[in-house]
């Protein structure tokens, strides 16, 4: 179990590295080596570490533990075929981690990152719409049931294509260097992660690596179905590289444009669900 967690962390960090490399190649730069993020994490973990004097001490540390904990839990929910609603819940709880991370330090940059993370709460709504759309087809929110449904009726990617697009957007909004990653924009230093340095940042890197692994795994599981393990990793990598292309060619949006785009997508999906409801009764 802990071995699988370490493996997922490793793969997640490797995917982050590949993401950076792909973006760099699209933009005509050489880019860092693909294991750069693994080195980053190790480097941060060797740095001298303390807690800023202005920080809210327990919270400052606790968010790092919570960040790793919730995504480990999400991985187990996925692997054991638990409730999709629980996965959605964990995704939303990640927002609290981001928010708490920024607020706990006392730094104005962290605070701006935290406020931006709350503003982009609109990015959660497409995921909710995805869940409702999936429920329309499968009549169950248990991941095991959804996988079983796809074995009989074919992948949901085809029958529920708009829902897959929404989920894709959700993953995009959590990718680094993407059009929606306003919480870590460079004009506010590192956003909500500004004051988490050293071991704390290494811990966050581990949590975020698990997050990337879980989100990509969930996408494949929900919309394509259960695949052999190596093929699963390969499909995840392909999705990641498509995301890298999107990240490479789009500029970062301003905070309010982010909300507008995400709300428009949600609105379109709500109309889709209403149509689905009328057609399917």
């Amino acid at each position: 179990m802990i071995l699988y967690l370490l493996f997922a962390t490793f793969i997640g960090l490797l995917y982050h590295g590949i993401h950076r490399k792909a973006i760099a190649r699209v933009q005509g730069r050489p880019g860092p080596p693909i294991w750069q993020e693994i080195l980053h994490t190790l480097k941060f973990s060797f740095k001298e570490t303390w807690i800023p004097k202005t920080a809210s001490q327990s919270l400052f540390i606790a968010v790092v533990f919570v960040a790793i904990g919730i995504w480990s839990a999400a991985l187990y929910v996925l692997l054991s075929g638990g409730s999709l609603l629980l996965l959605f819940g964990i995704y939303l709880l990640h927002k609290i981690v981001e928010h708490g991370m920024g607020l706990s330090s006392g730094s104005p940059y962290g605070k701006f990152g935290a406020i931006r993370s709350v503003i982009s709460a609109a990015s959660e709504l497409p995921l909710l719409v995805t869940i409702v759309a999936v429920y329309f087809f499968t009549h169950s929110l248990s991941i095991a049931d959804i996988v079983a449904y796809q074995e009989v009726h074919g992948p949901l990617l085809i029958v529920a294509f708009p829902a897959a697009v929404a989920m894709y957007l959700v993953i995009l909004s959590k990718m680094h260097y993407g059009p929606f990653s306003i919480i870590e924009a460079k004009e506010i230093v590192s956003g909500n992660m500004t004051e988490h340095f050293g071991v704390w940042r290494a811990g966050l890197q581990v949590g975020f690596a698990l997050k990337t692994y879980v989100l990509l795994y969930a996408f494949v599981l929900l919309f394509i179905g259960q695949l052999p393990f190596v093929l699963m990793l390969l499909v995840m990598l392909l999705i990641l590289i498509s995301l890298s292309f999107v990240c490479a060619v789009t500029p970062m949006l301003s905070p309010y444009d982010t909300v507008t785009v995400q709300s428009l997508v949600t609105g379109a999906l709500v109309i889709y669900i209403i149509i689905l409801g009328v057609i399917m009764g």
């Binding site: 919270l59 330090s105 006392g106 730094s107």
Partner: peptide
């Protein structure tokens, strides 16, 4: 258990 943060302005 947390102390309140001391906001830097």
């Amino acid at each position: 258990v947390s102390r309140p943060e001391r906001q830097v302005d």
